[in-house]
Simulated scan of single mutants.
Amino acid sequence: MFFDSWNGLLRVVVVGVCAYAALVVLLRLSGKRTLAKMNAFDLVATVALGSTLATVLLTSDVALAEGVLALALLIGAQFAVAWTSVRVGLFRRAVKSTPTLLVWQGRLRDRELREQRVSRSEVWQAVRSQGVGGLDRVAAVVLETDGSFSVIPASSAGGLDALDDVPDVPRG
């Protein structure tokens, strides 16, 4: 229960060091996008990588080569999704969400809050975290594709061209 064999411990150390090194190399080869802020697909890939690494480390039925191949497959799939979504608009819309406008010119957009399951308190917290004291001083709050909030204070709104990729922004 507490100790089976020295061979088992040695296997975890050797395979662990090798699998970790392989994971680092594969992540570096795949580029920064693999470790970017997470959307749903990034989260799935990250959890799958962690689960695969744990399986390789703790299951003697899985050879190191099989584990490294599984890690490479997951990273390759993530790379392919990111590469394709940058180049093919239809694919991008299928795999990624779009940002959602939650506050416009100091007014909460209740329908969007309900659709995105965001409470007023969460919006107010995001506004406070930016050092803004009231919604009347906010040009926009956007729920980003990674689940974070972007707050644009009215004092620094400028032309609001940063909202060009946000649907339903009133124009004019």
Rank of each mutant, 00 (worst) to 15 (best):
M1K: 11
M1F: 07
F2S: 03
L9T: 14
R11Y: 07
V13M: 05
V15P: 03
V17E: 07
A19V: 14
Y20L: 01
A22V: 05
L23A: 11
L29M: 05
G31Q: 02
G31N: 01
T34Q: 08
A40V: 15
F41Q: 08
A45V: 07
T46P: 00
T46R: 00
A48H: 05
L49W: 02
G50P: 11
S51C: 05
L53S: 09
V56Q: 10
L57R: 08
L57S: 09
T59F: 08
S60R: 13
S60W: 07
V62W: 05
A63P: 00
A63Q: 05
A65H: 08
E66A: 06
G67R: 10
G67E: 08
V68S: 11
V68L: 07
V68E: 10
L71W: 13
A72Y: 02
L73A: 15
L74K: 01
T84E: 08
S85C: 06
V86A: 11
V86T: 06
G89V: 02
L90M: 12
R93E: 12
S97A: 15
S97M: 12
S97Q: 14
T98G: 01
P99R: 00
W104N: 01
Q105Y: 09
Q105P: 04
G106E: 09
G106P: 10
R107L: 09
L108T: 06
R109A: 15
E112A: 14
E112T: 07
E112P: 07
E112Q: 14
L113F: 04
R114G: 02
E115F: 03
E115C: 09
R117N: 11
V118N: 11
S119W: 10
S121W: 01
V123L: 01
W124D: 10
A126G: 00
A126V: 00
A126Q: 01
A126E: 01
S129G: 03
Q130K: 07
L135E: 02
A139K: 00
V142S: 06
V142M: 04
L143S: 04
E144C: 12
S148H: 04
F149G: 13
S150V: 08
A154Q: 12
A154E: 10
S156A: 06
A157M: 10
G159V: 06
L160W: 13
L160S: 14
L163N: 06
V166G: 15
D168H: 06
V169I: 14
V169L: 12
V169N: 11
V169G: 13
P170I: 03
G172M: 04
